[in-house]
Design a protein around this nucleic acid. Sequence first.
DNA 1: TTGTAAGCGTTATCAT
DNA 2: ATGATAACGCTTACAA
Lengths: 337, 337
Amino acid sequence: MTDEPTRRRPTLDEVAERAGVSRSAASRALNNGPNVSRAKREAVLRAIKELGYVPNPTARALATQQAGAVALIISGEDPAVLADPFYGQVIAGASTVLEETDLHLMLCLATSARGQVRVKQLLQARAVDGVMLMSLRGDDPLARLALEADVPVVFGGKPLHGQVPFYVDVDNAHGARQATDHLISLDRTRIATLTGPLDTDVGLARRRGYLEALTLAGLPWRAEEAGDFTERGGIAAMEALLARHPDLDAVFAANDNMAAGALRVLARAGRAVPAEVAVVGFDGLAISEITEPPLTTVHQPILNIGREMTRMLLALIAGERPSPLILPTTLVRRESA
Amino acid sequence: MTDEPTRRRPTLDEVAERAGVSRSAASRALNNGPNVSRAKREAVLRAIKELGYVPNPTARALATQQAGAVALIISGEDPAVLADPFYGQVIAGASTVLEETDLHLMLCLATSARGQVRVKQLLQARAVDGVMLMSLRGDDPLARLALEADVPVVFGGKPLHGQVPFYVDVDNAHGARQATDHLISLDRTRIATLTGPLDTDVGLARRRGYLEALTLAGLPWRAEEAGDFTERGGIAAMEALLARHPDLDAVFAANDNMAAGALRVLARAGRAVPAEVAVVGFDGLAISEITEPPLTTVHQPILNIGREMTRMLLALIAGERPSPLILPTTLVRRESA
DNA sequence: TTGTAAGCGTTATCAT
DNA sequence: ATGATAACGCTTACAA
């Protein structure tokens, strides 16, 4: 409740003076480093309290050459990707881990061309101490950029091309196989799939799992239509699929959003789910519980993805060499299959 | 494709030397300021290209006393609030606006006690050039903290207590009235409401709108149950409501998530929607399109909230004095009412 | 243990 | 128009 319009915040020098010690001593006390007598340390701490001193993070960053922040970069044309609660979960996971550290979270949405340039500069300028990169499509230049930028990088999901040393992923192929196997166990023989974008590793891997399961089961029938992980896309894809293959008796959708779309199309088409057409999704997001009927789905631990990516990045920053991580999936049975 | 392990990035001094000019000239050229001859300017620009120079944002921040970032602070115990796509939209809106500036977006989730402290320090240390504050409950200390922190602040939604000079909000009371009026126009007379948290302005305002509409229409019947804006909460609240008031013939839920929950409860209870019980939600999120039946809802321009908050913050940072903004709502009719 | 002084990489002031 | 030089506020050798 001071009424000075904009009083300058105290500097460490002022703290030192007040405490009657040198600035270096004050600095050491502040960061409770060694080589400070008890007496001085306490004097400094007291002065800090009295003056309401808060260290200037920028100055500190300049001196230590550490930015004090990590970036979560979400690539993709459409800023609306964030409407997908998926990312919210990842962010929440990352955030909870970072909260225990001194690092802040910078969120970069690289959508426009200008956005791309800014991300590039962010990397080259080393404006952050580490980077998490998500949802790369095709051979997004961001991957190379990040890798070359001499900054710790962890990928959320393997990028399509090239090997990356550090990533957190989900066992997509296996999850897809679980889904498809489940459908097969329901005696379905004409199982179609709504794939994700086929210029992503996720999209491809889930499709691969689907195909493997069918092959292993000796089922010859297959049909697929590419979607884009949105519900709207799922609707379009399901309509196309149904038109081409009216005899299908099951659908594996590569995520819940598309599965929800498929459900709507099937309902409109008068196909009973699961009686006539069984449907399985992927993700286990909230949406899977509220569709009609509730969705059987392959659950992946999304919150953990964010958490583990962050932990891995912290390890990297700390100079360790963590191993890539592949998180397991579990089939959650509900009513759609 | 250099193979030096970690070559230091060039500094402005090196650029200057290479261009054969003083550092100050180089700086002026870099920021294309005045007082630089064409020749020198070009020489500097060339040197920058050749050396691949990228200015050090930290150093710049220290010199200019500007952080180069703004923070979006989302208060709330549970990091899972982010699972609500609502925030994703706000973030996306903010992000697209910031992309056109030189500011980055810092995301702060103030959940744990430690998180709170960090946010406090962030503010006091002026580690950001401005702050957007969302979803404050009760008399969250964050509001005062931010207001006192001598940093531009815009609020997303008015906080419950106290006046704040700069905020972006939605006309919640009016929206609630629209919803309730619609229900009334359907000749419903026993209209209940699932409120949001009553320690928030949103929660209170929507409840107020509901009550006003009933009063204006001369309808005496009312019934309410408090929820928490989650679907799970909506389910619990709807169950309680239905137990206490089995004769209700309409429900205004203060957001779509709760409305979705209500729909599930009603379905389980064998109440036909909208025939026996009409339901209206609030938000207009994707979820409202996929419930069964699709939800009639009061749509608010969430992406715009993020955009406008950011624009307002930018204006504030630029030294202007923007007016508070209240965005309009529109009723979207679907099948639930 | 203590303090002096030299950075960290910019921008900004001020003579020239 | 130009270029020294002094901030910016902190950390960290190094010397005492």
